[in-house]
Simulated assay, not measured.
Amino acid sequence: MTSLTAIDLFCGAGGLSEGFRQAGYHILAGIDLDAPAGRTFLATHPEATFFCRRIQDVGVSDILNATGLKPGELDVLVGGPPCQGYSVYNHQRGTHDPRAGLFKEYLRLVEGLRPRWLVMENVSGLTSIAQGGIIREIEEGMGGLGYEVSWKILKAEEYGVPQERRRIVFVGNRIGATNAFPEPTHGPGLQPLVTIWDAISDLPPLQNGEKTGPDRYAGPPANAFQRELRKGVKRLTNHSAPKLSPVNEARMKHIPSGGSWRDIPFNLLPEGMKRAKRSDHTKRYGRPRKTDLACTILTKCDVHWGAYIHPDQDRALTVREAARLQSFPDSFEFEGSRTEQYVQVGNAVPPLLGRKIAQAIKQADDAIASEQALAAAE
């Protein structure tokens, strides 16, 4: 059987394509303008071609020539174009908005490549823009090219990711298959949710600002999640602690497990937060419990903005810890400055969620192939 193929638009470091690779897809190419993310993508997807360009500057012929494909041969085109600037309902759109037109560029490549399947992901907040108008635009854009499209908001923690994360996922196909989404595997009545401590407890302790942390694990893997992410890895990377200021160090010492900015003495609070209501800023200066899910991993683990203090060490989460909470394998060595590494991790689709999506598509693909084989035999 010919191997299944995928191309990742707006690929970043390659979280979504990593999930598809884990499900058995051959990743042929990725496109992104972020050069450090591209270096990470190339290092972790050595079989793929990487286009470090604006998507507007990548032609269909460029992709076909690099991959050896012909139109209609690609199995899945995946990606997450920013859509907010595209919508006709967004009255602030225009050439000043760098997001404007990116979804149209996505459709341009769909039209030229004619993949059998589409997977597009984005922020769950798309549903509330213009009373759902942008959702209708996406459906109409894909439908106009002959794709039957469905969408669903997926909760990453329901698929074994140790983090509260919501993403809207569009799945489309032009082969008459049912658009399938993965069934939850974790939660009430299912497997237990994977906690923060399940994800990071084997990583060595660090001091605040310790730049060259140990490259060895603190001990053997403690559970199936750690075993899977450590598979084949001998040297730990991207595990160094950002240097927080003395005042932030002083603040953290007052924050217990499960605590937040409310536990910081008034005289140590940032000036802007001294005027805050107790009901405001619920995640700021948060120290999660070991048994918690992580809050959504963003493009920086800034303790001032979220619950990014280590559960039992007075420091911020490292890039490796953030990557674990995103379900990246430890084999991913993130390139660039530490700031750029945090951005790559925070912008990514959790690979484990990507794998579940890919497996659901494979099952739907197999089902339509079986139906076609039976029809041909009759």
Rank of each mutant, 00 (worst) to 15 (best):
L352T: 12
K231Q: 15
A316N: 00
G68E: 14
E249H: 06
W197D: 11
S240G: 15
S370K: 10
T178P: 06
R136E: 13
A375I: 09
G68N: 13
L269K: 05
G94F: 03
Q22S: 12
D215H: 08
E140P: 02
R230I: 13
D314F: 10
T49R: 15
I309Q: 03
E210D: 06
G336P: 04
S3Y: 12
A23K: 00
E157Y: 10
R165V: 00
P188C: 02
L145P: 08
L298D: 13
G38H: 02
A294C: 14
R278M: 10
Q313V: 06
S260M: 00
I175L: 12
P256G: 05
I134E: 05
L107Q: 11
E137L: 05
Q341W: 08
A23S: 04
A199V: 09
W151P: 00
I264E: 00
I297D: 01
T2L: 14
Q341Y: 06
E228K: 15
C11I: 11
A360C: 10
G187Q: 06
P350K: 14
N238E: 09
K70W: 08
G59K: 13
Q163A: 05
A177P: 09
A43I: 07
G176V: 04
R289F: 06
Q363H: 10
A369M: 08
P205C: 04
E148T: 06
W151K: 12
P46L: 14
H26M: 06
T49S: 13
L244F: 09
W117V: 07
R355G: 12
A37S: 14
D292I: 04
R165H: 03
G259R: 03
I153V: 15
P82K: 09
K300A: 15
A37K: 01
T212C: 09
G101I: 03
G354A: 09
A29N: 09
V349Q: 01
Q313G: 11
